[in-house]
Design a binder for these strands. Sequence first.
RNA 1: GGGCUUGUAGCUCAGGUGGUUAGAGCGUUACACUGAUAAUGUAAAGGUCCGUGGUUCGAGUCCACGCAGGCCCA
Length: 1146
Amino acid sequence: MHYKEYKSVNYAAIADEILEFWKQNKIFEQSIEVREGSPAFTFYEGPPSANGTPGIHHVMARTIKDIFCRYKTLRGYQVKRKGGWDTHGLPIELQVEKELGITKEDIGVKISVEDYNKQCRETVMRFTDQWNDLTEKMGYWVDLDDPYITYKNEYIESIWYLLKEFYKKGLLYKGYTIQPYSPAAGTGLSSHELNMPGTYKEVKDTSLTAQFKVKKSEKSDFLFEAAKGDNVYILAWTTTPWTLPANSALTVGKGIDYVLVHTFNPYTYLPVNVVLAKVLVNKYLSEKGHEGDFEGFEASDKKIIPWTVLAEFKGSELEGIEYEQLLPYVQPEAAAFRVIIGDFVTTEDGTGVVHTSPTFGADDFRVAQQNGIPPIMIKDETGKDVPIVDKRGRFVKEITDFALDYVKEQYLTDAEKETERQKQGRDKYLSVDERISIKLKTENKAFNVQKFDHPYPHCWRTDKPVLYYPLDSWFIRTTAMKDRLVALNKTINWQPESTGTGRFGNWLENAVDWNLSRSRYWGTPLPIWRSEDGEEVCIGSLEELKNGILHAQKDDALSIEQKQKNAYFLELLAENKEDLHRPFVDEVYLVSTSGKVMQRESDLIDVWFDSGAMPFAQWHYPFENKEIFDNSYPADFISEGVDQTRGWFFTLHAISGMLYDSIAFKNVVSTGLVLDKNGNKMSKRLGNAVNPFETLAQYGADPTRWYMITNAEPWDNLKFNVEGITEVQRKFFGTLTNTYNFFALYANLDNYKMTEFDRVPYERLPEMDRWILSKLNTLVKEVAEQYETYNPTKAGRLVQDFVCDQLSNWYVRLCRRRFWQGEMTENKQAAYETLQHCLVVVSQLMSPIAPFYGDWLYRNMTDCIREEAKAKRTHFLHESVHFTTWHEYDASMVDTDLEESMELAQRISSLVHSLRKIHKIKVRQPLQRVLIPVLSESTREKIRHVEEIIKSEVNIKAVEYLDDDSGILKKKVKPNFKVLGPKYGKDMKEVGNFINSMTGEQLKELEKSGELYTNSALATFSYLKLEDVEILTEDVPGWLVASEGGITVALDMTISEELRNEGIARDFVNRIQNYRKDNGFEVIDKIVISLYNNSEMLVNAIEANKEYICQEVQALSLAIVQDSPQDASQIEMDEFLLIVKVNVVK
RNA sequence: GGGCUUGUAGCUCAGGUGGUUAGAGCGUUACACUGAUAAUGUAAAGGUCCGUGGUUCGAGUCCACGCAGGCCCA
């Protein structure tokens, strides 16, 4: 026996078996070794975090990665894939805090930073075992023996190196971002803290609509013209009037409609022309005043303010208009006070114009930066730029009218309020907002002031309002190289393309500087040491740090304690026990060139920098492995979820682009989400998360992977339904396994063993074999194209369709007889060889997606000649399909004519089947002939080619052709719109009607002379050309016909006595075969049959076909007896009752 | 609110550059086959192609505006 036979297969068991084989023989390692010296295909693994358990979506994401690495190996590349772990970051910290029952505030108090980080380090690798287990079980090949781990010193050192490179290029700088800040507590708040319940409280604030006076310029001319040369103001609304001294721009929405309104200021009653959003006019001006009495206003009681619209325009027309500074206490360093466009402007509140102060609003900051608008800032005593409100929440002295006043009333104690009240000389303390309102009212700069209720965030510790306030941060100056990053991105092949051009491209175009700072504990420390007056050094290696310390130790600037701490760090270094995390690096003190003590900036860096640095840091570049790095940069391929667009994809791209003017990856597949079967997001909380281990154990890795890949394109979201996996199991894997088993069963019976030589030469192969080989080669070509363009879904579907429709349902089904009949002939050998070849190639084509099953099939097919192949150094010497090289597409084996012929055979057979069906004539009943109308000689030739196949497939004696000359063909003519369209355009209806109502005579004329005089009223349509129509046959008068897609078939339903007898004989054979089987006869058993003559018709039929029957059922004799035999069996046949005795001949 | 994306049969999905009768698999129903048989084949039923406008002789396909879902950002 050369081929293993399987009664039933369990795909999970196959995976286990193959996995064991892989482990025992180090197949993964070997798959890389066998490609030693071959060109490299580089893959970067986006590191997962092992602090959570893996989910089914990880199976999806990693299958994609695996597919292309395996495919490229088959294509002869060496594909090293180093695994990695992402180990830093907030999720880990939060998890540790939850487990220890502490908050961030407790770190350094209840638990030392050292212990806390120790805890993080342990927690982060907690589920590594589960991850490794999943990796194995799903068949994902990645090197987990030597992964990169982002918390390792070597990794961090490489990051420091990169940061220093940024620093040297002037791309790493200290700036600020607008963050929630509590002046009362003196600390910034995280978004996490801001999301705590009770943070947002309903408060009553002073809201103010200010009038910004427009300057005359080319851009604003149209406003002044409409206002007849008078003053023009832009109205902007704010709930924080204290930010108005920091205003440096006004933001409008580019698509919003604005109007210029002529009216009076409600406080000063001066005539004004104001700009605001069209839909908000009614919020400020009552309908009663519309087109009111301007002339009489001065004399009236001024209760109704008249107004009229002078002009209407889009926000985009306002862009660039300049205005006068509203409260000119502090001057900006560059040109400011312009109208800019922002995407966050709404017309829900206010005026549709947003007062913009870059120091006190996150949106404001961003939009100002994008438009080159400077913030309003002053210099502090050290010369540093600071905002006009200090860290305690008070105006700086430069804001003369309100110097040192708290901007929020709530920051004052009652006693302070009283003192202030006396200073103000009023009976009630007036807040800054109120006093600014009064000032603006009197200066004709306020258009509206009122109290406004709205929710406002409060500090959870002090209960006082939060300010949005600029806080120090370190940045990478992405904006400086934006254009280059955009240009580089255009050279990357994105799959799908829209993620690259749209989501990623747009994001790059609008990118702001990358904020690196995180004020946490467990992460890569920022390697910058800084003195109080701003001297700083960026450390790029351990060596540099060591030298820095040694240098500092000699300096008197350090205290004894500082020197002791430095000494301790040096000691650790000497013993190689250093830890580059906090708190250790924080206790290193350096000395600046001018002799000042420098301490490390306390920030950690964004964990995304960690992962984005992996091309370098995974190899500890440039300190080690320079050569390896050079050979594996940039990556040929990466893949992650589309949610990584602004995460890993961006940081990889930014670091490579900015430091090395290179892309980091050439091809990228961004994958969609895995949802539950109803399209909802999976979550542990909702309990609809699918456990990947259970799924793999129950269904097997191969069907699971196959289902995920072929069901939807990877970038579409996948609605994960296990029923889909069972379908894949049945449909694809079941069919393929059956096909294999069929092969194995007969090959073993025939003692056939694959040979790589002495094959039946191609020229002598039967049509059927040549056809499936042609299909196979076409398949190889198409599958390769799909893999090459990173379309695994289409690749899988192609393989699946080939296996199910062509190989199993057509080739094997129609060739069954060749396998089970007679001795080994050339024809039979050809069948074995052809099927064997198809199966082996399929095993390879499918192996990237279904690596276990592919290998299993390959090994089942080739194990029997392995030793021989090894000895002769031939194709199948490899013990795993994953070592093989891609089956070369052989164009000479592709015969498109033959493929078309066979397709005709399939379609014609299907039509005949359907006719039989309708008329209830079973396939076992032979029919005399089928008529096929053909209009061209080439079609006739193609069908003739496969006549035999059609005849046996549908049990018909003859195929006949009807051509035009027969005269009985009824033809149908249809307009060819594609041709007619350009010619006749809107006269199409008329032309169409003409064609549809053409007579047979006219059609004949058209066919004969190639054109037809139409006698149409349309001048352009006097002649109809042959190319303008499609001619088909649809009917054969007097016959039963079926047609579909241009093919028509007519079936002769006459059942002659001879045909009837044959039908009965075949039915009889069928019953005997069933009997043999039911009674457990062996396939090779010979039998003798005695049939009781209880029907003339039956016996006649059997006598007439006796030879045929005996051959089919392997009967040595078939006797008709006049008495019912003893122990006879009774078998039902359609119209007869068989009383028959069947005995095995021993 | 913005960027990107999806919407076709009960379910999962195909439907180059517009061409009039929109396909496949699963499921359902019926039938056939019975030496691939806990398989297999054939057929039938099943569709306001998310909606509304527009361009066009003609729109599932192109355009605009919506609706619903998703991701990211604010």
